[in-house]
Simulated assay, not measured.
Amino acid sequence: MLSKTVSEIPGTPPQAPAAATALGLLLAAHPAPAGAVTALVTALAAASGRDAHGCLLVALAVLAGQLSVGWSNDRIDLRRDVAAERGDKPLVTGTVQARTVGAAAVCALALCVPLSLASGLLAGTAHLVGVAAAWSYNLGVKATILSWLPYALAFGLLPAFVALGLPGHPWPPLWLTAAGALLGAGAHFTNVLPDIETDLAAGIRGLPQLLGRQASRSVAALALLAASVVLVLGPPGTPDTAGWAGLAVTGTLALATALPLGTRSRSRLPFLTTLALAAVDVTLLLLRGSSLT
């Protein structure tokens, strides 16, 4: 149950002073990816022609969804993280109570529903399906060979959330949906890389765990590179100099995820590289002025 407290989990440390709760709650939300995804989707909304109010609705809906996913992930994985002695997890160190994180996850999810539907029924449904896919990953799909699918679905539907909220409710072009799905799949592999050994010890048998560290690096690089190629070549017209230069940059970043480059096995650098690549991709899309419809 999400309401069970960390003190009730055998082997967990005592709760830290209450003054640290806010920081612990923030860290348990996975702020880096949550903030990055929110910023990038909001940028897409602004480029699509949404007014300030529409962009704010998009930002709040995406942020609520991301927070719910991050908090639910840490709450659901608490026992596993305790067993793995994950000192980087606020729930494991007792910085924040499990009941607090569980309640925050439920509240964020509840807020996500009206915030998503405020952009329209079709747009809101697209976003909520993506959030549901992310929750399904946390609730068990992560341990199966289809672990990549929730990421691909959730990221692939983000352009639809933006486009379907525009007048006429147009569906985004197929190339944009495909690029989002490829980017999501690549992000899944780079996000899992640091935890492959502990996941295997805990019985998690997702696709990256089954493939192993180096094969997962290669798959991540291919998916991320494919996403960039689709974003550069997918829009009508011939790519300009900025497009080719951007593809060179994203290609280099994708290659960096495939090479250990002396990084520690638990390094989060590949995932941070993925976030940087996504930012470059969205920037290229905006510079080309490509329509989302």
Rank of each mutant, 00 (worst) to 15 (best):
L284T: 08
V282F: 07
Y137N: 04
G87Q: 13
L164A: 03
F189Y: 14
L174K: 04
P14G: 14
T190V: 13
T283D: 10
I145W: 14
T144S: 13
A52Q: 09
V192P: 01
A32L: 12
P14L: 12
A152L: 03
T273N: 12
A215T: 15
L200W: 01
T241A: 14
V129I: 15
C107T: 15
Q66N: 12
Q66A: 09
L44T: 02
D281Y: 00
V229L: 15
A16T: 06
H188L: 11
L139R: 12
A181C: 04
P167K: 06
E85K: 13
V82C: 10
L60G: 00
G87K: 12
R266P: 00
P114Q: 01
A181D: 00
W175E: 01
S228V: 07
T283K: 00
Y137D: 02
G243Y: 07
T293L: 07
L139E: 04
Q66R: 08
D281I: 04
A245S: 12
V113R: 07
F155K: 02
L149Y: 05
L224A: 08
S218Q: 15
D51W: 01
A256N: 10
T42A: 11
A29H: 08
A110W: 05
S147Y: 07
V113I: 15
V282Y: 00
T250F: 09
P235K: 07
H30L: 03
S48H: 01
M1Q: 11
P260D: 13
L261A: 14
N73P: 04
V141L: 15
A45D: 06
R268F: 06
G184Q: 04
A118T: 02
A154P: 02
A179G: 09
A226M: 10
P159K: 10
A223C: 12
T198H: 13
D77H: 04
I76M: 11
R99K: 13
N73Y: 08
T95V: 12
V113G: 05
P173F: 03
T144K: 05
A45K: 01
F155G: 03
F155I: 02
A105S: 14
A221I: 06
L200A: 09
L259M: 13
L67D: 03
A220R: 08
A36M: 09
G11K: 11
T95K: 00
A16N: 09
L146T: 08
A279K: 05
G124Y: 01
A178S: 09
A223G: 06
L200G: 09
Q209K: 07
G251C: 10
H53I: 11
